[in-house]
Design a protein around this nucleic acid. Structure first.
Lengths: 243, 243
DNA sequence: CGGCCTGTTGATGCGACTCAATTCAGGTGG
DNA sequence: CCACCTGAATTGAGTCGCATCAACAGGCCG
């Protein structure tokens, strides 16, 4: 498995404070708050395929991913799984469960060897009431999650697989290059089986759909590397036009 | 259309402060904060079928529903719609968009004549930084929304219509009676066409699925009134067992 | 009464999942 | 360096769930 594309975002040898400063959730915090946070942060490592927490388990704290890759999943009794979100370095996960007095809404599983910072619930809640900025950041983080989930729901209920895939391709391109343009390329950064679970389908269907997009001349693909060929076509497929 | 089941939750003739006190989002606030809020709150009415806000529009504020019923929807170019949430009296909507610097993630449409309280974004954000309790409540509200969306995603991606319907029936029963038990009954409180959109399907399929649950002896149904007959069976259908 | 909206039922077709077989890529050890 | 193994990816054939299209029944209201 390829390394995730932003692996080098965080310098692991840096002081905790300097790492924390780069996390969106902690932006704009006073030095004093950052200092407190860095005292509370616990370094935790997880090796590949380890479950970091189980869906339903009472949330004791939340994580910041420093290195590696994590999937947040729901799975059904008969073995199918749906990937809610792929967590990349610099992002937080498990935050929502800490706020609600409930269990984690999904399981978190390490896709690679991972390094994280962990904040215990009680520690964090205390700081939250003391720092309006932190609370404000947390609200912003959560609303973005809400938007993300809302969009996924829209896609799952109203669009078919090809649209979801096209949207995913466009999103990743935008994320990587800041623009959409013929000729731009990027890596999938996850296995196709995982991508399938993320798009709410299975690997066979994804394989066929990918082949179809290639056939239509919308993209090229070789061993997980995507090249945009026809952005306009992709956008219209993403909107739901049939071909 | 039947009146929503908790229509009488709020006494409209009461003073604004007394109404606000009963809203979860404002629970535990000081009298001073409540007083400020009641000064900021603007009464707004919408008649049936009016669009309260459009998806994508920049969020200027958010609403508390006092009376009536509102649907939050996404719709596709070809006319299909997905209902994210049905808002009942006492609940807030549009909150998330106020926190993110983005547009509303979905459209809000009045299903009946509605009465609301409206808070302008800037007013509310000011109060938010001044009151840690309010911020804390807001975070709790948003995490519950997150949980709700997460569950819907799980259902949509992993379960079929009969499971989703069974789950819905069980949820409503729990909400109405606080327990699940054979013989308990309740009203759907929305039209079947709307329920179909909420479950990510269409009215024809819902109709057939409902008939099938009746045939299996799991429920009885007559003109929108559901009677639980076999809770165990319902639960196993909701979990994904095929029949 | 006649129009309108909601809901039901039937026939048909399509998209996507299932199952099974095969190929491919990467990693291991002789 | 090649033979081997394992998990991922692809491809084909068959099936199923659900959307679509169409016709029709019932309740409500002007």
């Amino acid at each position: 498995m390829e390394k995730s594309y932003n692996e080098a975002l965080l310098d692991m040898s840096a002081r905790k404070e300097d790492i924390l400063k780069k996390i969106y959730l902690f932006s704009g915090l006073s030095d004093k708050d950052l200092e407190t946070l860095s005292r509370l942060a616990i370094t935790r490592r997880f090796s590949r395929d380890t479950t970091i927490f189980w869906e339903g388990r009472e949330a004791q704290g939340f994580f910041i991913l420093l290195a590696g890759q994590v999937k947040l999943t729901k799975s059904s009794p008969d073995g199918k799984e749906y990937i809610l979100r792929i967590v990349n370095p610099g992002e937080t996960f498990g935050e929502a469960a800490v706020l609600a007095e409930a269990g984690y809404p999904a399981s978190a599983i390490a896709l690679e060897d991972c390094q994280t910072l962990y904040f215990a619930k009680t520690d964090f809640l205390g700081l939250l009431s003391a720092s309006p900025t932190l609370a404000r950041n947390m609200l912003a983080t959560m609303s973005r999650l809400l938007f993300h989930l809302t969009r996924q729901l829209e896609d799952l209920s109203l669009k078919e697989v090809s649209s979801r895939l096209a949207r995913y391709v466009l999103d990743r391109c935008l994320e990587k290059h800041g623009r959409i343009e013929a000729g731009l390329s990027f890596d999938l950064a996850i296995t196709k089986t995982h991508l399938a679970s993320y798009l709410g389908t299975i690997s066979e269907t994804l394989s066929r759909t990918l082949a179809r997009l290639k056939g239509l001349g919308a993209i090229n693909e070789d061993r997980g590397r995507i090249i945009i060929k026809d952005p306009t076509l992709l956008q219209s497929i993403a909107k739901g036009t049939k071909f």
